[in-house]
């Protein structure tokens, strides 16, 4: 079973909640489609982004049994990282190529 776009946004927000536990209260990432994730205007540094990606992948595997490697996608599609919404769109697209978790 593959998640809907709304369910993917839910996974992304859950992951941001966990990433935010590692950040000072004034630097936490807003859970909003417009939130820019990385880059000059982004809210996550490289380690924060690694944590975020790993969490999204893990939740996807745990909830839907799907293995997806988002880091590869992210490095090849910079536009995908622009904000939460574009990340979710790209993520949703990649799921069509994903394989069930073994």
């Amino acid at each position: 079973m593959k998640p809907t776009k709304e369910e993917l946004i839910g996974i992304i927000y859950e992951s941001l909640d966990e990433v935010n536990e590692q950040l000072p209260s004034d630097q936490r990432v807003q859970k909003s489609p417009d939130t820019i994730l990385v880059g000059r205007a982004g809210r996550l540094d490289s380690l924060g982004f690694v944590n975020f990606i790993a969490l999204v992948e893990e939740k996807c595997a745990h909830k839907y049994g799907i293995t997806v490697s988002l880091m590869e996608a992210s490095s090849s599609e910079e536009a995908a990282l622009e904000n939460v919404k574009s990340f979710a769109d790209s993520f949703f697209q990649r799921l069509s190529d994903a394989v069930p978790e073994v």
Partner: peptide, 18 residues
């Protein structure tokens, strides 16, 4: 069971799950 997190290890040399 996910205490040793292979994703975090290979992405960032982070040995354990959060």
């Amino acid at each position: 069971p996910t205490a040793f997190n292979q994703r975090l290890w290979y992405l960032g040399k982070i040995r354990f799950s959060n």
